[in-house]
Every structure is written in C-alpha cells, then in structure tokens.
C-alpha cells in the first residue's frame, strides 16, 4: 500500500498547525518547485529566491485552504503568481527611468488622457501583428530570448521587430 507525498491528511495536519507536518509538506513541495523554476528560469540563485517566496506564500495561505485535496492546484497557483510577478518585476522598462528627467519639460509630459490613448491605439494598429505581439509580451517583462521562444523565432528577429516598431512610431509621431 502506498500514500501520496501530499496526502490530504498531511495537508490537513499542516493546516491545523502541526509543525512537523508543515515542515514535511513544505520540504516536499520545495522539490517540485525547484524542478519547476529550474525549467522556467534556470539560474540557481533566482530559483532559490522564487522557491522561498512561493513557500512563504503557501505557508501563509495554507490556513485559508478549505479543501486539503486541492493542495496541488493551490501550490500551482502560488508558483505561477510568483513566477509572473518575477517576470514583471525584473524588467521595469529601462526607458521609463528617464521619465522623471523629462517630466519637468511641461510640453513633453506624458499625457494619459483618453484622446492620446486613442491615438496610441491607432498607432499600434498600424504595426504588423507579430511586432505588436512582441511589444505586448515585452510589457509583461519577458526578455527577448524568451519572447523568441514563445513566438518560435530568433532573438535577432525579435530585436529587429522592436527596432522596426520604433522606426514606425517615429514616423507616426512625426505626423
């Protein structure tokens, strides 16, 4: 006879505050997480950080888990939240770091009014679909190499599309 490594009884004991069960549960989960984040990110130092953040999220959310047999989905979501938060956090657009230096120039401040947004949307529609996809994936924080893998094209092609988008935007904003 055999028992699952994430037996609902173990999860239930952990949820009720049994420290040993909780340690066993998190230790077993960390092995899954290590494999998952290594596959996604690779870099061991980053993987270790993501494992710790996910375990912390699971640890603090466990008490609210109503169905111990749903632990797998619970842990999966925690890992996905951490992974995608990491993507967004690591790549705050470098261009934006210049905004504070631009903002004092009143004439050139970035206007978020709906009229300007409409213009930007129209400008985006003028881009080729793949170029637009790249800009939108970039916004989520994916690196060019990751975007290349998602779209099954080369990293150079991705960079070129970004450059072309910029060239296109130059002409659009010149009008």
């Amino acid at each position: 006879m055999a028992a699952s490594k994430f037996d609902p009884q173990l999860v239930l004991r952990a949820k009720k505050g049994d420290e040993r069960s909780r340690n066993v549960l998190l230790e077993r989960l960390s092995v899954v997480l290590e494999r998952f984040f290594k596959r996604k990110i690779g870099d061991q130092a980053l993987v270790d950080d993501l494992i710790q953040c996910t375990l912390l999220r699971v640890h603090s959310g466990l008490i609210a888990l109503k169905h111990p047999d749903k632990f797998k989905a619970f842990a999966m979501k925690a890992a996905l939240f951490e992974l995608h938060d990491y993507y967004r956090g690591r790549h705050s657009m470098k261009e934006r770091s210049f905004e504070p230096e631009l903002l004092p120039e009143k004439n050139y401040s970035i206007n978020q009014s709906s009229g300007d947004s409409m213009d930007v949307e129209k400008a985006l529609e003028l881009l080729k679909p793949r170029t637009r996809r790249i800009l939108e994936l970039r916004e989520h924080g994916y690196k060019y190499r990751e975007i290349a893998d998602i779209l099954n094209i080369s990293e150079t092609a991705v960079k070129m599309q970004v450059k072309r988008a910029f060239e296109k935007m130059k002409t659009i904003f010149a009008d």
């Binding site: 930007v120 800009l135 939108e136 916004e139 910029f166 935007m169």
Partner: peptide, 20 residues
C-alpha cells in the same frame, strides 16, 4: 518628441495589461 511618443506607447500598454 520621438522618445516621449515611444514612452506613451508603453504607458498605454501597461495601463491595459491586466494584473498578474
């Protein structure tokens, strides 16, 4: 002008990108 136009595009996309 070119650079702020580019920033506008990103601000626009960021505004629309749903929360994680």
């Amino acid at each position: 002008r070119v650079f702020t136009g580019w920033l506008q595009v990103h601000s626009h996309l960021m505004e629309r990108l749903p929360e994680t």
